[in-house]
Amino acid sequence: MISTKDAKRFLAEYKRVDIAVDAFYNEPVQARQASIPQPSTSKLNALFDKYKEPGGDDITVDGTIRMCEDMKVDPEDVVLLAIAYELKSPRMGDWTRAGWVDGWKNLECDTISAMSSALVRLRDRLGSDSEYFSQVYNFTFEFSRPPGQRSLGLDMAQGFWNLLIPHGLQGGALSHLTRPAGSDDEGDEDDEMMGLDEEGWREEYTGWWFEFLTEKGGKGVSKDTWQMFMEFVRTIDAKFEKYDMEAAWPSTIDDFVEYAKERLGTAS
């Protein structure tokens, strides 16, 4: 699609619309791309310097808060997890210069206004694109895990689940899959078609999951449980009837299914 700037450039050069259109489509793609202004490294470095710690090399918590104020975004907005993924943040509230410059360049931003617009696009993509949601979801465990720890604290895990799971459910990134991912049996096709209207994970179940983990008394969430929980949410039916106890689910999820079935039985 031709931009307004390119349209004006070609019209000014060739004077006639038909000739200008032919010239546009005959011009090499690389040449057209070269005419599009690229994000400025100096502008991005200047913005980084504005937010980084005085005398330090990184943007930390205080700079992150100022950045969010300028972008008019809540620091606890789920889209900040997508930004952390895009900018390769090493840990919460911490941004390196290299990640900042390369990340914003990839997003084609070098001003606060452009960055604010990118947040809108990324928030929508995070909610609607299942593959992108998975990438950000799995990254969240790595960047939020305390250095030297193999697991994520229960309170912190619940906080991130509270951001990610509702967003994915509402936007469609966590839409219910009627057949477990990775199943290649052609014989399952009829079952899959019969399950097209099957109800999946309900938002209230996220609260049940938190209550179960709290009652269980565990202090942390392992990487395996974190990653598999996302797939569990995508594939489990609303009555927990099609859960395969013989499959390679973490034991924590096995136990939760029994817990959920008991709650459903009590409710009915």
Score class of each variant (00 low, 15 high):
135 Q>K: 12
247 A>H: 10
97 R>F: 04
25 Y>T: 10
211 E>Y: 04
112 I>L: 12
30 Q>I: 00
84 A>K: 01
42 S>K: 14
80 L>S: 02
243 Y>K: 03
216 K>A: 08
151 S>I: 03
62 D>W: 06
187 G>D: 13
15 K>H: 11
99 G>K: 03
10 F>N: 01
43 K>N: 13
212 F>Q: 06
105 K>A: 04
122 L>C: 04
187 G>L: 10
218 G>P: 04
232 F>M: 04
70 D>F: 03
47 L>P: 01
250 P>W: 07
156 M>E: 15
162 N>I: 02
77 D>H: 08
27 E>Y: 03
261 K>V: 10
266 T>H: 14
239 K>P: 00
80 L>R: 07
91 R>E: 04
268 S>G: 13
176 H>W: 13
231 E>T: 14
132 Y>S: 08
263 R>W: 08
205 Y>F: 15
11 L>P: 00
135 Q>G: 01
91 R>N: 08
77 D>V: 01
43 K>F: 04
42 S>R: 14
96 T>C: 00
266 T>V: 15
179 R>P: 01
63 G>S: 06
254 D>Q: 10
53 E>F: 00
116 S>D: 05
85 Y>H: 08
198 E>R: 11
185 D>E: 11
167 H>W: 02
184 D>K: 15
163 L>D: 09
188 D>S: 15
76 E>I: 08
98 A>D: 14
73 V>Q: 02
104 W>K: 01
121 R>E: 10
28 P>C: 07
32 R>T: 04
76 E>M: 12
112 I>E: 08
128 S>P: 02
263 R>E: 13
120 V>S: 05
54 P>W: 04
256 F>L: 04
161 W>M: 08
21 V>R: 07
114 A>Y: 01
54 P>Y: 05
190 D>T: 10
252 T>D: 14
149 Q>N: 15
57 D>F: 08
193 M>Y: 13
204 E>L: 07
142 E>N: 11
246 E>F: 10
160 F>H: 12
241 E>M: 11
97 R>N: 10
171 G>K: 05
146 P>V: 04
78 V>R: 00
57 D>T: 13
156 M>F: 14
145 R>L: 06
97 R>Q: 15
165 I>E: 02
124 D>R: 14
193 M>E: 14
249 W>Y: 10
36 I>T: 13
247 A>E: 11
